[in-house]
Design a protein around this nucleic acid. Structure first.
Lengths: 342, 342
DNA sequence: GCGAATCGAGGAAACGTTTCCTCAACCTGC
DNA sequence: GCAGGTTGAGGAAACGTTTCCTCGATTCGC
């Protein structure tokens, strides 16, 4: 930059002004531009942000559960689309639901002075997140709410999504509905379970021991749990799986046991190829792109100066009736009467 | 940092030494650590890298086709796993196969002085990539080779993967094999097409006009092209789709036309739920995680000082025989003889 | 016991920018 | 025509660090 100033025959400050678009004599500006071109000068945003009064790095941090997870990566992309417009770069990392790893990413991003943070928080809100938020860093939590002063969140109505599915199954005659849930430490997993329990209670359906499985993580766990339920004494007539991989695992078990046409199945979160299965898989779909978009917008508003209390956006889920959830109750499996009392 | 030095009663330089682990009087070190703790001091890697002699930012840039694409995101994750160990942060962006967008990301990452770059290059190697490479930035191309001095690459043996699938189909009696390919501007799409053409020629199978479709992009284009082929005068007995989304689109067409049990189908690149379809989808699988891992390792070796010529790693593909590719030639569909001459 | 070599800490310059402040030149109004 | 105001460019300090250099103190050899 010094060289550019020398070649253009102007002061350092003028070069800076030209670069930042501060009005300056057009003749000088042209000289500077030309000199910069000839010297192959490249502006250094890092040094710039060091001195700059607002300390903006034009970088934002994104902490996902796992960048490779389709849900996360679609969200990631939506965030990228919004931030790209503003010329912001994205620093991304995976927490793997590990609070310690979340802590370390949070620390690294904060130390690098990112302008803001979009986070899918692990479990309970950790101290690091609290500390970073307290220091005035704009933060938006996504997919899971975090009850922190001045922190926004965008979530999905998990409980209602599951409850809606349960009511639909009930309307088709199903009373014996099994449930597979992820680790109870996850905010979403708890909400979905609550939605299930509440809806079943509201419909007067008792919960059978062993038909409500929680703390399952990953495809294999889902398959095994489904297999146990489906090889039991009496079978449920419908199955709700409240997470991606659990859905896939359970479906594998259903197909393996030849029950995929007999037992209704609804999963939470859409999955590629779901509509090419036979029967096609019905799901409670979220819109990860919408989550990412809304979260980015909230963050951008904070970047633009909004400094009010946390805003909490809740997006609806959408039930996609494709077939597997529309299987009617199979009466021949049932004992004489479906007596909810026992 | 100045405050820490003052509180600890030492010089600025000593604080820096403590932070960077340069040996220093243990008593002073303890004072510094304590002072830093009390003041809640956080080291600023940005300012650090500005002055530091090696100019390392401990950041690397990752340019993918689309972070939301499962292939890309799994690769992303593998890169993250390797770089995390080294305490490097990842700046990620999507090029969308748009050279201009690639240019802009490249420029932004370079300006921010990332220590290295892992890139899935769009089409031909652009000037920007060439320029950045020439300036000594360590670069590894992944998924697609780039013929640049001092630039490594990790790719998959695309041509052989497709050729292998064709030979397998041939062994099952198939002679009339259709092919769906992505945009010819893509390096991988060209290689896969070449593999198809070469294998067909080697086996003495003529290519029928209209059965080799290229320049298809996206699921809808795949479905439409497949539909056209499958509603033609004479039908192929097997179908090779050389990209993710084309595979899904083609499979949808096959199922919609009720031909999924009649016509063999092999896709390139594995896809979630493929094994739960009926028949399960056979694919030529790549290992995106391995691509990402190897690319990261090559980059790390350059970061560690390797400055030799570009190294080019080629990983094999793996054929996953699940069912759809093992459908035998359906003789009743064929006219009297399978006369390759006409 | 003294000079030289060694060691380790402090001070200051430097990294590439922006911003404050100064100052020269020009313009305006009387 | 001149005082005061306005405009706009240059010089220098500052951002938070690292590194070079200096210098005092300790140790070692003779």
């Amino acid at each position: 930059m010094k060289d550019v100033a020398a070649l253009a025959g102007v002061g350092l400050a003028t070069v800076s002004r030209v670069i930042n678009g501060t009005p300056v004599d057009p003749v000088l500006a042209a000289q500077v531009t030309e000199a910069a071109r000839r010297l192959g000068y490249r502006h250094d945003p890092t040094a710039s942000s060091l001195r700059r009064s607002d300390r903006r790095t034009r970088t934002i941090g994104l902490i996902l559960e796992d960048v490779a997870n389709p849900f996360s990566s679609v969200l990631h992309r939506a965030v990228e689309d919004v931030t790209r417009e503003l010329g912001l770069l994205l620093l991304a990392g995976s927490s793997d639901e590990d609070p310690e790893r979340e802590r370390s990413l949070l620390g690294a991003f904060h130390a690098r002075r990112v302008d803001g943070l979009i986070v899918v928080p692990t479990g309970r809100v950790g101290d690091e997140l609290r500390a970073v938020a307290r220091q005035g860093m704009p933060i938006v939590c996504v997919d899971r709410a975090a009850d922190l002063e001045g922190v926004d969140s965008v979530t999905v109505d998990n409980a209602e999504g599951v409850a809606d599915a349960v009511r639909r199954l009930h309307a088709l005659g199903h009373r014996k509905i099994a449930f597979l849930g992820d680790q109870a430490s996850l905010w979403t997993a708890r909400r979905r379970w609550e939605g299930f329990v509440a809806a079943m209670a509201a419909l007067g359906c008792p919960l059978k021991d062993g038909w409500v499985r929680r703390d399952l993580h990953g495809e294999a766990a889902g398959e095994e749990a489904a297999r146990e339920i489906l090889t039991g004494e009496t079978l449920p007539t419908a199955l709700v799986t409240s997470q991606n991989l659990l859905t896939i695992g359970a479906r594998a078990a259903l197909q393996d046991l030849g029950l995929h046409h007999a037992i209704a199945h609804v999963g939470f979160d859409d999955v590629e190829l779901a509509n090419l299965l036979t029967p096609p898989l019905s799901v409670i779909a979220q819109d990860p792109a919408a989550l990412g978009r809304r979260a980015s917008e909230l963050l951008v508003s904070r970047l633009d100066g909004y400094d009010g209390p946390g805003r909490h956006v809740v997006l609806p889920t959408r039930y996609l009736a494709r077939g597997s959830g529309e299987i009617q109750r199979l009466t021949r499996h049932l004992p004489r009467a479906d007596d909810p009392g026992r």
